[in-house]
């Protein structure tokens, strides 16, 4: 099976600082492989090893995605090779643009049987790139997938629904978004990192791909800091739990919360 795993090179918003106007300063945040994407890699690796086949890492972003560090970090994961679309024109791209680029790259790779993505990216976290990607490719998509096995000409997946577990069979190529707990990713060791530099990487720019342009129907009017309720920040002494509990209950009854 030829499996593509889409991984994002992104920074954790928790390391960014937000100015009074809501402007975000990412300079202190160090990008890395987005939190949940290693789960997708693990899921893909296991499937590929079971069915025989390769796992190809695919990422789209600015030049940073193709920096030595970023390549090494990615390829030290359990990919066989990687295709990287690095173009600074993608700096401010939204989910639809990114998905369109990824779809074009999947076409470029050719004969792909399955695309697996993470649940959500650590920065945008919209959970939409995989589904738009599927739309671009005209393939079926399933999100929050817990496990996947190969069938002839397709896959069989399990996912948790609001009232249980559902087993689905998909014929032909598809896009799956792995649930955050679908697999336990392995941390790369020193040997993995050394091996990383020997894996083949194909670096592309937008010029190498045929990407449809997304309608510019949305613009930014402004940004703001989330308005936080003023909190009392009152600490209750807990040396005697019973006393503390009584104090809390009294306080909450006072405010009418109880």
């Amino acid at each position: 099976m030829k499996i593509v795993v889409a991984y994002k090179w992104a920074s954790n918003p928790q390391d960014a600082t937000v100015g009074a106007t809501g402007a975000i300063d990412w300079s202190r945040a160090k990008p890395g492989i987005s939190e949940y994407d290693p789960v997708a890699v693990e899921m893909a690796r296991e499937l590929a090893d079971a069915t025989g086949g390769e796992v190809i890492g695919l990422s789209a972003g600015t030049a940073a995605v193709n920096a030595t560090m970023a390549r090494k970090a990615a390829l030290s994961r359990r990919f066989d090779r990687a295709v990287i679309v690095a173009d600074d024109a993608l700096a401010s791209s939204g989910s639809t643009e990114l998905a369109a680029v990824l779809a074009a790259a999947v076409q470029h790779i050719g004969d792909v049987d399955l695309v697996i993505t993470g649940d959500s990216s650590i920065d945008v976290g919209g959970k939409m790139v995989p589904t738009v990607l599927a739309g671009e490719l005209g393939w079926p998509a399933i999100a929050e997938v817990n496990s996947v096995t190969g069938t002839d000409g397709g896959v069989r997946v399990e996912r948790a629904t609001s009232d249980g577990t559902e087993v689905l069979e998909i014929s032909g190529p598809a896009v799956l978004a792995a649930a955050t707990d679908a697999a336990v990713p392995r941390l790369p060791g020193m040997k993995d990192i050394l091996a990383a530099t020997k894996k083949p990487v194909e670096a592309l720019t937008l010029a190498d791909l045929d990407v449809p342009t997304t309608a510019g129907t949305v613009s930014i009017k402004g940004t703001a800091r989330p308005a936080l309720k003023a909190r009392k920040g009152q600490m209750i002494d807990t040396t005697d739990p019973a006393v503390a509990a009584a104090a809390l209950v009294a306080a909450l009854r006072g405010t009418g919360a109880l």
């Binding site: 030595t68 560090m69 090494k72 970090a73 790369p188 060791g189 020193m190 990192i193 050394l194 530099t197």
Partner: peptide, 16 residues
């Protein structure tokens, strides 16, 4: 500094 090392041919290995 790490970038400079990389450029000079050092194999930089973070996360280990």
């Amino acid at each position: 500094l790490a970038e400079k090392c990389e450029e000079a041919g050092v194999f930089v290995m973070p996360g280990v």
